[in-house]
Design a protein around this nucleic acid. Structure first.
Lengths: 202, 202
DNA sequence: GTCTATATGTAGATAGAC
DNA sequence: GTCTATCTACATATAGAC
């Protein structure tokens, strides 16, 4: 038992399916591609997960905490709005660097089936309430101008997520190569919070 | 000839295909659905456009001017950076209200085939150069802090496009109904330029 | 040009041997 | 549990009548 175990077949299927679904979306994903990427055979997918839909759910249901927990979590511990904004954007970008296609995938699938990935999102509810309180508190003590907390959160998510969603467009428009793009992304962990804070500071 | 003509079959196919492709993406779109929506029969699609790929190209090749011309055009005529930002965001949002699924579709398809929609994007090249000059000019005369024009443009596009791309998520996260969402979108024609300008003003 | 009917290809799903 | 072989369903594409 001291021997390092190979990842179980089920685990390898889930990992492979996750990559393929995120890369191609539900409609574009092929069971064959998942099988190939898991190093097994198509029939075995159906043995573990009855059909494509269930495989999809097996991958993404209940994975919300793992996917976004760290991002919403970054908000939770903060007592200062500006710190919260900085931590959120930084955590968001860090997470997306690991899985650059995730935001596009989620946008795609939520559009196809708004109920489907609801669990994906719900987990941050407490954190969002906390964030709204930080905004209100900062407004009361005159640290920021009068802004809508929901609008602000939309802007934070937009500025964090969009460079990943629009990656091919940005590469093309600005004639960037991989390295330049990656540099821009990393710099945005600093420039985006600055951008946001400058615009709301009283 | 004074009689009002029905839209030609080819035109109706293109219109229907456009709607279906934007709604479902290339992978998710079905020829049958296009045929139904055009009020004709599947075989006729193949008569006019040899296959699905060519239909897709027939819809989206060369349509760049129509799709984005008005947005880049909004930049072109401006001599003041702040006016340019306001006009761009406003034009972008107006355009997206007409076709709310367009930004998600483009992100999706550019990811699938980065070459495919290149023509879609290229048209704004002159406008982007003009925009970079406006940024530089504003910086020289001390109207704004030192910002990277490319980053700024990314932020403008992010703040304009993301609410459309993430619509289902925003509805869900903030517990909005259609009306509230629509109100927020329209208000963003004002709040987003304010947000941007505040953050770069010297 | 437009239709009905049909062929072809591909992907999801099952049967059954090992 | 894992494989090969096969079935079924569906989507794209074509043939041919009108």
């Amino acid at each position: 038992m001291a021997r390092v175990k190979e990842a179980s077949t089920e685990k390898r299927i889930l990992d492979a399916a996750r990559r393929v679904f995120i890369r191609k979306g539900m409609a574009g994903a092929r069971m064959q591609e998942v099988a190939d990427e898991a190093g097994i055979n198509k029939a075995l997918l159906h043995y573990y997960f009855r059909d494509k839909q269930r495989l999809f759910e097996g991958v993404f249901k209940g994975g919300a905490e793992q996917q976004f927990g760290c991002i919403w979590g970054a908000l939770k511990d903060r007592t200062d709005l500006f710190d919260a904004i900085t931590a959120f954007v930084s955590a968001f970008i860090d997470r997306m660097v690991e899985d650059p296609l995730l935001p596009l995938f989620i946008a795609q699938e939520m559009n196809r089936d708004p109920e489907g990935l609801r669990a994906f999102i719900d987990r941050g509810h407490m954190s969002r309430q906390h964030f709204a309180r930080l905004v209100e508190e900062a407004r009361v003590r005159g640290a920021i101008i009068d802004v809508d907390a929901r609008d602000l959160l939309v802007n934070m998510m937009a500025l964090s997520a969009h460079p990943f969603i629009a990656r091919p467009m940005i590469l093309h428009i600005h004639g960037m190569n991989e390295a330049a793009y990656h540099r821009m992304i990393l710099e945005r962990k600093r420039t985006v919070p600055d951008f946001i804070i400058r615009s709301i500071r009283a």
